[in-house]
Design a protein around this nucleic acid. Structure first.
Lengths: 320, 320
DNA sequence: ATAAAAAATGATAGCGCTGTCATTGCCATT
DNA sequence: AATGGCAATGACAGCGCTATCATTTTTTAT
């Protein structure tokens, strides 16, 4: 309708520098007028590049992965890629279904959370032949790309912090026993055994999904089975917050009678009364760096390090 | 390789009932072996049905829209559609960019949050000629499909609740002034004016993004400009929670000296001390119903009602 | 003014699938 | 045995775009 061939229109959008200024403007104008939007499906088919990347996270219920995804989006959007996000609810089975679903979009790469995949999922990914980067945990296997931090080291650091505050009877309470939670449990154990203070009845691990309400429940349960506990390390801030509220209700003095610590440093954790000691995890940064690494792999660039450890920070606050 | 034509493979996946049991199994087997996944781009192109639907929400930072999206996903997944989600950060400009980006996926329908779109966005959507359903607010214009509840009515109900508790100097505090927040403000005003108790200095509206930390700040600011306030209605639970913490810190007795109310009923709101009076919004249900409505429109079925009001519930708790 | 190089535009084929119509083979009915 | 009907399978074209190579136009160098 502008008297231009289709290929020129295509070029005006994909390689604007190859089309004369004037013509490009006319094409743009015409496109705006009729509300033309390039069809990605056709583009992907013809160019063999979908410009899609798939991202799988376990949950969006607290802000942890929302921030990661925000970082990912930022990087990819800048480079013209479209991010497709799926939530697997901490289930390797759901993950496989999602991998299948997103592979159908012929993504140029994929970001996965952790390393807890089914063998069949791994096979699917291999056959797809696209680059994969794993987030949050650090690689435990040859050849895998990953960006994250050591969950164990962070949990060790927190346990040592509680020890340094003079606590002797430190409990560990966890729910939703995904691999990262279990790694935190190992970190706690390492530190507490090294201090010669390990007592199995101070560990409380339940499979239920984490929530603030569950934190209150688990606090009560733990104090029943180990009443003389003087510090509790919760595997995440949600549980710790619930415990903090329950202490307030029951008149348990925090930190005097009982120290409480969490993990993740959610925004609310510095607002609670008392404010919550926790581990600040580099969630946003993990997203950004993982996206950059994947981008490099997609573009065929060499990646200097296959494993990027972004560390963590201990935020010591009023609750300990 | 199974000695079957491509069209038969296609049929085995799309219309399994049209392929013999035996052959279908063999095709499935072969597909699993080589990790074959159907290419949606090609499928969409050939069939003129992408089986994509695009969903635009303002934020994922608190669980409000996460729950809505969960409901949407559930419905669409059951029907074989893939949901593509975008976050517009309460910006009509970002929304337009997202509409463009997702229109490129040739979605069969789109779900938008609210009615606050640019004219150019509206034009794009019209030209795309796909069904659109709006969520959270109820339609204010001819022909628009919407699923939600009356933000104004809910805010009125909350204000009347505070009045019924004998409060006379009720403040309204809001941030992130999106259309729904402003509708809540109108609801508050209506009720408070009707009670003859409107005083402009008890309204505090700031454009900043909502957060728990901001709740504490705004509480302080409000109490400076209107120290004798005996109840505060916050436009959302995040702010109200921050205020609750600040009251705890300052020793302000809630609800005796000051009643505090929120909006949304986040999971944490019934755990706080004191527990938070708030409006339970049908977030998940909005997602489910909006998805069903859109599905009906896509399939060309008649939709009984263009506007579905799912109501709300007042949760009176300790904080009032 | 002319040749050579560079820039701008076009023609063609084909990406992987599916809608449509055609063909084959089988069974039931007469 | 012949016919019609139906289920199962296949051939072919084309969805909207872009990679590639071909052609035309413009610019630069001589």
């Amino acid at each position: 309708m502008t008297g231009v061939s289709t290929i020129t229109v295509s070029r005006a959008f994909r390689h604007p520098e190859k089309v004369s200024e004037d013509l490009r403007r006319r094409i743009q104008q015409a496109a705006d007028d009729i509300g033309y939007v390039r069809n990605r499906a056709a583009s992907a088919l013809a160019s063999n590049r979908s410009m899609n990347i798939a991202v799988l996270v376990p949950s969006l219920s607290n802000s942890v992965f929302v921030e990661t995804v925000t970082g990912i989006e930022k990087v990819f959007r800048e480079h013209g890629y479209q991010m497709l996000m799926g939530v697997n609810h901490y289930s390797a089975e759901e993950e496989e279904a999602l991998v299948r679903a997103y592979l159908a979009f012929a993504p140029d790469g994929m970001l996965l959370t952790g390393f807890n995949h089914r063998d069949s999922t791994r096979r699917l990914l291999e056959q797809a032949g696209i680059p994969i980067v794993h987030m949050m945990e650090l690689s435990d296997r040859e050849g895998a790309y990953s960006v994250g931090f050591s969950q164990e080291a962070a949990a060790q650091a927190m346990t040592e912090h509680l020890l340094s505050r003079g606590r002797q009877r430190i409990a560990f309470v966890a729910s939703q026993l995904d691999p990262r939670t279990l790694a935190r449990n190992r970190g706690y154990r390492d530190a507490i055994i090294r201090a010669g203070l390990y007592e199995s009845h101070r560990e409380l691990l339940v499979p239920d999904q984490s929530s603030v309400a569950l934190g209150a429940v688990l606090l009560k349960r733990l104090l029943e089975q180990a009443p003389d506990t003087d510090a509790i390390f919760f595997c995440n801030d949600d549980l710790a917050q619930g415990a903090l509220f329950e202490c307030l209700r029951q008149g348990i003095a925090v930190p005097n009678r009982l120290a409480v610590a969490g993990f993740n440093d959610l925004a609310i954790s510095e607002c609670t009364v008392p404010s919550l000691t926790t581990i600040k995890t580099p969630r946003y940064e993990v997203g950004v760096e993982a996206a950059r690494m994947l981008l490099a792999l997609i573009e065929g660039e060499t990646v200097p390090r296959k494993v990027i450890d972004l560390g963590f920070q201990l935020r010591a606050r009023e609750s300990t």
